[in-house]
Each structure stands twice: as structure tokens, then as C-alpha cells.
Amino acid sequence: MRTLPGLASLLCLLSACGNDAAEADKSAASATPRQVTYAECMAAADRQPSRAETVARAAECMRLPDAPPPGSTLPPGTPPPPVGAFADADTGAISSVYTSLSEEDCRMTSMDEESGSSSSRCPGTAGYALNAHDGDARISIDVVAPDGKVHELNYWGVITHNFSSPGPRAEWRMRGGRPIALIVRVNASEDPVDSSRLTSYLAVAKITPRQACVTDRIAPSPTANEQARAAADRSAGRPCLTEVPQG
């Protein structure tokens, strides 16, 4: 049986229009920008050339849909642990808890008006806190244990001798409910020609019942975060750095 010419043309036209519509929908979908995640936004904030720009960018990240609620120290998307989950603090998987190092969230404890040096107490986790020091435009951090003992990490002696500033947050590596290591980004001004050009290191410090000290200085690379976490998770058996590594 022959198909009427008019009907065949109509069917062909409808088929073509359907394909065009599908292609148009596909193009529209591909043109829609992907939503940046909180983790991606914070990583970009860490790479800003100045502390002020880093803090401003981090504040924008807090408005993203997957950002942690205000005051939370849990990574985005992580539900609070159930009661009794940390009964055995020395077993279980290692995870991360984040706390702020921004000026807005830290309380100044001392200030030298003549030199401009200052110290601040910043929040921690599991009974720990951090002392952030800024002296001669160089930063360092102390880990304050729950018993009040202060462990100096000496960033200006083992990470960089140059002008430096911290990233917007600290990452605590946790086994159960106990911190086993601390990771902090240290932005160093090491270019003698352009002081605004920063080199971003990750300072890895072990935390044991007896001491806390820097064990690794992770240089910038696309996998620096992964390297820092791997170093942090095995840091308990590593020696403390005593000087800025060469090379």
C-alpha cells in the first residue's frame, strides 16, 4: 500500500522537528553551569593571593547549598555521629573535622602595640584548641591539649622563614573521637621580585598523647591535599621537623 505524499511529508517533518527539539534540549542542558560545591569553593579560597581575599571568598562559600551549618565543625554533608559512636576512640576509620582560623572566629589574647605582633585563641575539637600567632608578618600555630599543655608547631622555623599567612581553616584528622593530626595551609611570600605571589604549603603535624609537632611540609601540587592527608594518617611514627626542608 502506498503512503499518501502529504502524509509522508508530514511524518518526516514531525520526526525532524522532534530531533531538533531533542538536540536543543541537550544543548541547553550542556550550557547550564555546574553548581560549585562547598569543598571546591573552599579549595579556591585557599588559593587566593591574600588572607583578606581568602576570608572574603570563604564567606561566599558559606552561602552554598551544601555548606555546613554555622558553627559546625563537621565536613559538609557529614551527619552528626550517633551517641556512643566514639566509645573506642583508638579504632575505626579516619575522618576529618574542620575548624575556623579566620579572624572573626578567633579571640585575640595578646597584642604588642610596638611590634604589631599578636596572638589569638581559635576553636578546635574534642577539647583541643589552637593558638594562632602573627609576628613580623609571619604566622605560626600552637596546639593546646585538653589538659592545657601548649605544643608549639613553629611554622616560621620548619615551614617557611618568609612572610606568611594561614588558610581560612584547620583540618583535624580524627580516629574515632580523638585528633591524631592537624593540617593547616601556610601561604608564604617567597618570590623576591613579586611579594604578592604566594607559595601555598600544607603543614602536617602529628598529635599524640605526649606531643604535637610538624612532621611534613607538603609543597604545592594538584594532589597536595591527598598527600597531606596520607602523611597525616601515618604521622604518629614520623620524626618532628627541626628546620625548613631544602629543595
Rank of each mutant, 00 (worst) to 15 (best):
D233F: 01
H151Q: 05
E113T: 00
C17W: 02
M108T: 07
R121H: 11
R57T: 05
R107D: 02
C61A: 10
D105Y: 09
G71Y: 15
S164M: 03
A137R: 09
E226T: 01
E40L: 11
Q227M: 05
L7P: 04
R138L: 12
E190A: 03
D66A: 07
G116W: 00
E104D: 04
G92Q: 05
L101N: 03
P33C: 15
Y155C: 09
A129F: 01
R47H: 05
G176P: 01
A24T: 11
R47G: 09
S50T: 09
E114F: 01
P81K: 15
S118K: 00
D105F: 05
C17Y: 15
I139G: 07
V55T: 07
G167S: 06
W156V: 08
G167A: 09
L4D: 02
D142Y: 04
R57A: 08
E60T: 08
N19W: 07
R185V: 12
G124R: 14
P80T: 14
T3C: 07
R47S: 13
C12G: 02
E23L: 13
A22K: 02
V143L: 13
G116Y: 00
T3K: 09
A236T: 09
R197A: 07
R217H: 14
A132E: 15
M108E: 12
V36Y: 01
W172H: 06
Q35D: 04
M42T: 13
K149E: 14
G18Q: 04
A56C: 12
S9I: 12
I139Y: 10
R175E: 15
E171I: 06
P33A: 14
P75Q: 11
S72Q: 02
M1D: 14
P70H: 15
S15M: 14
A67D: 00
R178P: 04
A188K: 12
A236M: 13
N19T: 07
A137C: 02
L101D: 15
G237A: 11
N154P: 06
D191Q: 03
G167D: 02
A67P: 12
T3W: 07
D134A: 08
V144L: 11
S27K: 04
R2K: 04
L241P: 00
A132I: 13
G247N: 02
G84S: 13
V204D: 04
N131R: 14
D88S: 12
P5H: 01
S27I: 02
S96H: 00
R229E: 14
T32E: 10
A59C: 04
A52Q: 11
G176V: 09
S117C: 06
G135A: 06
I180L: 06
T242L: 15
G116N: 00
G237I: 06
P49S: 05
E226V: 05
G84R: 03
A58Q: 08
S50A: 11
T73D: 07
V186F: 03
D142M: 06
R234P: 03
I183A: 00
D25Y: 11
L10I: 06
L4Q: 13
Q48E: 09
Y155I: 10
G148M: 05
S119R: 01
Y155Q: 09
S200N: 10
C122Y: 10
R217C: 12
S9L: 00
V143N: 08
C17P: 00
L74N: 03
